[in-house]
Simulated scan of single mutants.
Amino acid sequence: MSSTPERVAVVTGGSRGIGRAVSTRLAATGFTVVVNHASGTAAAAATVEQIQEAGGRAVAVLADVADEHAVAAMFDRVEADHGGVDVVVHSAGRLALSTIADQDLDVLDALHRTNIRGTFVVAQQAARRLRAGGTFVGMSTSVVGTQFPTYGAYVASKSAVEGMTLILAKELRGRDVTANVVAPGPTATQLFLDGKTQDQIDTLSKVPPLERLGMPEDIAAVVAFLAGPDGHWVNGQTIRANGGMV
């Protein structure tokens, strides 16, 4: 009787926030999860420990997503240790808020290095390595549609994520590999909450018709659907997971 083949997911930015929720959710559905992080070794180790304590399989791997050599080495290691890659979720990202008039261009460059170059580097490796039946999921933001002031630099980067990922879906024709984007609305993560007053948080939580902030687990559930067999007919789409916010 043959054993079930190991299914392997790489989650960038997998140690915190939405990435951590995605890592734990995919592990719970049977994936071996590679928890990528660029810093925060303790957080990555805690994520791996949480998965293992729940009976799942996970390993933490350090790599700057914008460094093509580090990312290629990470995928080399995954293939050597686990035989291949079936799902890549690119959750790593930066957020910096400023009006366009006042935007510090050094901050802009750092944000775009992670959010645009990092997405391109990870998507490039995913395109080269994902096995048949596989999935790439990029991470955008619903602010691409709502266009809140002070999000100019961030939205510029996430618009790029949406554009390149939907092109990737077409370039993967014939491979039985999907590429989609999940675009969360306001979600209760450290990245979102930092620098906001309680009044700002309360106001934003009332914007969706469901009148609450999203939770990381809400977004992880959408990613898990796309990564599983039930979601494999969804391809080349941006899914705005935001409680109905427009």
Rank of each mutant, 00 (worst) to 15 (best):
G56K: 06
L191W: 01
Q147A: 15
F75H: 07
G40F: 07
T197Q: 09
G13A: 04
N115F: 00
L95S: 09
P208Q: 11
A70S: 06
R173L: 11
L26C: 02
F148W: 10
S15L: 01
G174H: 04
L210Q: 13
Y151K: 02
G163R: 04
T12V: 10
G17H: 03
D86L: 01
G152R: 11
F192S: 01
A132T: 14
T189H: 08
A42T: 13
K206M: 13
V87Y: 04
A156D: 07
D106N: 11
V161Q: 05
A58F: 02
R113E: 13
M245H: 13
H37D: 04
P208I: 09
D218P: 04
Q200G: 10
V144I: 15
A80C: 05
V143C: 03
E211R: 15
V143Q: 13
R94F: 00
R113T: 13
I239M: 12
S98D: 14
S23Q: 03
A72Q: 12
G231P: 10
L95M: 08
Q198L: 05
A188F: 02
A160Y: 14
A156G: 12
L26R: 02
Q125T: 01
H232N: 10
Q103V: 04
T12K: 09
E49N: 04
A60K: 09
L226P: 07
T189K: 07
T29S: 14
K158M: 11
R129E: 06
G231L: 05
Q124E: 08
A101G: 14
A224L: 01
D81Y: 01
V59E: 14
V181Y: 05
V155C: 12
I100V: 15
V78L: 10
F75P: 08
V144W: 00
S91M: 02
A220I: 03
V207C: 01
R94A: 13
V143E: 14
T197N: 08
V33H: 04
T187S: 07
L26P: 02
G118T: 10
P186E: 08
A27L: 10
A160L: 10
G84W: 11
T178M: 09
D104Y: 07
I239P: 05
V223Q: 02
F225R: 02
L97C: 04
S3T: 07
L172H: 05
H232Q: 15
G83D: 12
V107I: 11
A73E: 12
D104E: 13
N235P: 08
A58P: 09
T238V: 15
G83I: 13
P216S: 08
L166T: 14
L213K: 04
T114K: 01
R128V: 03
V144F: 00
V11C: 01
A70K: 02
E49H: 03
T4E: 12
S23E: 03
G13H: 08
Q103I: 06
S39G: 14
D218Y: 02
I51D: 09
G19E: 07
D176L: 03
A46R: 11
L111V: 14
T238L: 06
